[in-house]
């Protein structure tokens, strides 16, 4: 399936873009993250949470939505 991946803050600095479409054939979020680690090695050293369709998910969550976001530590306020 085709996923829209969004990157923010210091994660977007690593990926050099804020959004991309990605073809994904796996099942779990963890597999997607592995795929992203292969593409962007420095991501392995970054701290981030993952949102699927704007809800936080874990690595064990199944990929079901079409919008996945990698969120670095929050800094509001």
């Amino acid at each position: 399936m085709e996923l829209k991946i969004k990157y923010f803050g210091q994660i977007a600095e690593v990926t050099q873009q804020e959004e991309e479409s990605l073809e994904f054939s796996g099942v779990l979020i963890s597999e997607l993250i592995e795929q992203l680690y292969e593409k962007y090695t420095p991501l392995k050293n970054k701290d981030f949470q993952i949102a699927q369709n704007q809800e936080l998910v874990t690595l064990e969550t199944q990929v079901s939505g079409n919008e996945i976001a990698l969120l670095p530590p929050f800094a509001g306020g």
Binding site: A51, L71, P72, A75, G76, G77
Partner: peptide, 12 residues
């Protein structure tokens, strides 16, 4: 304010 700091995806 504490909820905003902890839960809202804002980056600085």
């Amino acid at each position: 304010v504490e909820a905003i700091k902890a839960d809202v995806p804002v980056f600085g």
